[in-house]
């Protein structure tokens, strides 16, 4: 039985595919997009999230403890009287997680919904993901950055009903600068996805002056062709969770408002009205 690290399970997630869905957030991501609004999902394995609001600065969470589930963490999970310390990347085995998710199988069935795996980057834990997907006899979707091997990507496509692939920057240099990795494997997987005939959706996060420029968007438009595209406006709250995980939000985003977006440069794009979640 494979185990995975999960940092959230969200019921009734309305932006992650058709029908009523539960989205599972898997911890760990190979990219370091400067605009990432889920910083608690970046590191692999386990960790802690410490919400700041209401903190009494009592220091109880720093006192060493003997709880088995606190081993290896820098804080005690069972000390905060305000409930502000939360475990990230809790360990689930595939069977227990499948059972938890299938609690809503009746609702998935009646609403045409299902389960979406998101992250972090779910395919970073691909062995666990494949075992989990095999245990879910419901509609399955994956939200991925596409930064994975051809083998993993092809196998994932076989196992799911819908692929949501993020394409951020077309220019390799800019991609390295703002996400920390080369985009070649991502664009190759985009080609595989388009060739597969698998239902899919390309998502483009619109980051002011970084990804939302006409140059980048038209280059992406050329790459995605007739694939359906969803453009996700910049979420001004993107930096909100950084202090809770001891990270600092980027200074590279120069402004809070997106540049005017012309969806017409794409063959088949919609602009989401809300900040993406």
């Amino acid at each position: 039985m494979k185990t995975g690290h999960i940092f959230d399970i969200k019921e009734f997630s309305v932006n992650d595919g058709p029908g009523i869905r539960t989205t599972v957030f898997l911890r760990g991501c190979p990219l370091r997009c400067v605009w990432c609004h889920n910083p608690e999902g970046l590191e692999p394995g386990r960790g802690v999230l410490i919400r700041q609001r209401g903190c009494l600065q009592c220091g109880r969470c720093r006192i060493p403890c003997n709880h088995s589930d606190c081993q290896g963490l820098e804080r005690c999970l069972h000390a905060c009287p305000m409930g502000l310390v939360e475990e990230l990347g809790r360990v689930w085995d595939a069977e227990s997680l499948a059972k938890r998710l299938l609690r809503d199988a009746d609702l998935f069935e009646s609403s045409g919904g299902g389960v979406t795996l998101s992250g972090g980057e779910p395919l970073l834990q691909h062995e666990f993901v494949f075992e989990l997907l095999g245990l879910l006899p419901v509609h399955k979707a994956v939200e991925t950055c596409g930064y994975t091997s051809a083998d993993v990507f092809l196998k994932m496509m076989e196992m799911v009903d819908l692929v949501m692939l993020d394409i951020k920057l077309a220019d390799p240099g800019a991609h390295r600068r703002y996400t920390g990795v080369d985009n070649t494997p991502i664009l190759e997987n985009l080609r595989r996805l388009k060739a597969s005939g698998k239902p899919h959706l390309i998502r483009v996060p619109l980051i002011p002056d970084i990804t939302d420029t006409p140059e980048n968007l038209s280059a992406i438009a050329a790459l995605v062709g007739d694939s359906p595209v969803e453009l996700l406006p910049y979420n001004r709250m993107a930096g909100a969770k950084y202090p809770s995980v001891g990270k600092q939000f980027t200074h590279l985003i120069s402004k809070q408002e997106n540049n005017p977006i012309d969806t017409a440069m794409f063959q088949n794009a919609t602009l989401r009205r809300d900040a993406h979640s």
Partner: peptide, 22 residues
């Protein structure tokens, strides 16, 4: 309130209420 920005949020909410009734 932002949940309702999703284009098919009405359909999904309708399904959720029906689920409660069922």
């Amino acid at each position: 309130a932002s949940m309702f920005q999703a284009p098919d949020s009405i359909d999904k909410l309708a399904e959720l209420v029906r689920f409660f009734v069922m």
